[in-house]
Computed example of a mutant assay.
Amino acid sequence: MTDMHIDQKVLSDLREVMEEGYLQLVQTFLDDSERRLSQLRAARSAEELSTVAHSFKGSSSNMGAVALAGLCQQLEERARRPPLYGIEDLISRIDREFLEVQHFYRGEQQRILTG
């Protein structure tokens, strides 16, 4: 399951580079992601959607959440080509993918805290 959602190489590099800061990085990513999801749902313009999708894509990619980054990229590209009919489906897919990523990273937090 994980390999479809998370790039393990990126993850191991992050753990190595961040060391003690890794746990905080994970928490910041989860918090930021929830905020970005809210922003996507609340977006009222194509430009707003594109901007939020772009920043969400970047943070997801940095955290190794490859499938999530890919969906955000699709949304970013789609938002540049109005009209936006059917875009809710893409946002729902991003929501569902984030749940997978969130579940994985919550597991990472537990592993570190109980490790």
Score class of each variant (00 low, 15 high):
1 M>Y: 06
1 M>N: 10
1 M>R: 09
1 M>V: 11
2 T>G: 15
4 M>I: 11
4 M>T: 14
5 H>D: 10
5 H>N: 14
5 H>A: 12
5 H>M: 15
7 D>C: 10
7 D>I: 05
7 D>Q: 08
9 K>Q: 13
10 V>N: 03
10 V>H: 01
10 V>E: 03
11 L>H: 09
11 L>S: 07
14 L>Q: 03
15 R>F: 00
16 E>S: 10
16 E>G: 05
16 E>P: 00
17 V>S: 05
17 V>T: 09
18 M>L: 15
18 M>V: 05
18 M>H: 02
19 E>L: 10
19 E>N: 09
20 E>C: 08
21 G>V: 07
22 Y>V: 11
22 Y>M: 12
22 Y>P: 12
22 Y>C: 12
23 L>F: 06
26 V>I: 15
26 V>M: 02
27 Q>H: 10
27 Q>I: 15
27 Q>K: 15
27 Q>S: 12
28 T>D: 14
30 L>T: 10
31 D>E: 13
32 D>K: 09
32 D>A: 12
32 D>G: 11
32 D>Q: 13
33 S>A: 15
34 E>Y: 03
34 E>K: 15
36 R>A: 11
37 L>E: 08
37 L>Y: 08
38 S>G: 15
38 S>A: 15
40 L>S: 09
40 L>C: 10
41 R>E: 14
41 R>F: 08
41 R>Q: 15
42 A>V: 06
42 A>T: 09
43 A>N: 04
45 S>K: 10
46 A>R: 05
46 A>G: 12
48 E>C: 06
49 L>R: 04
50 S>G: 11
50 S>V: 06
50 S>N: 08
51 T>Y: 02
52 V>W: 00
52 V>M: 02
53 A>W: 01
54 H>E: 04
54 H>C: 04
54 H>D: 06
56 F>A: 11
57 K>L: 08
57 K>F: 03
58 G>Q: 04
58 G>K: 07
58 G>D: 04
59 S>Q: 11
59 S>R: 09
60 S>W: 01
60 S>A: 14
62 N>I: 07
62 N>V: 08
63 M>E: 02
64 G>W: 01
66 V>D: 01
66 V>Y: 00
66 V>G: 01
67 A>P: 01
68 L>E: 03
68 L>C: 05
69 A>V: 04
69 A>D: 04
70 G>F: 00
70 G>S: 08
70 G>K: 07
73 Q>C: 07
74 Q>I: 06
74 Q>R: 12
74 Q>Y: 01
75 L>G: 04
75 L>N: 04
75 L>W: 00
77 E>Q: 14
78 R>A: 13
79 A>H: 02
79 A>K: 02
79 A>E: 02
79 A>G: 03
79 A>I: 05
80 R>T: 14
81 R>T: 13
81 R>E: 12
83 P>S: 08
83 P>T: 11
83 P>A: 07
84 L>S: 00
84 L>D: 00
84 L>Y: 00
84 L>A: 01
87 I>T: 13
87 I>R: 02
88 E>G: 11
88 E>T: 10
89 D>V: 05
90 L>Y: 03
91 I>D: 04
91 I>E: 05
93 R>G: 03
94 I>T: 08
95 D>V: 13
95 D>C: 08
96 R>S: 11
98 F>D: 03
100 E>L: 08
102 Q>P: 05
102 Q>N: 13
102 Q>M: 09
103 H>Q: 11
103 H>K: 12
104 F>A: 11
105 Y>G: 05
105 Y>F: 15
105 Y>R: 06
108 E>M: 14
111 R>P: 01
112 I>V: 15
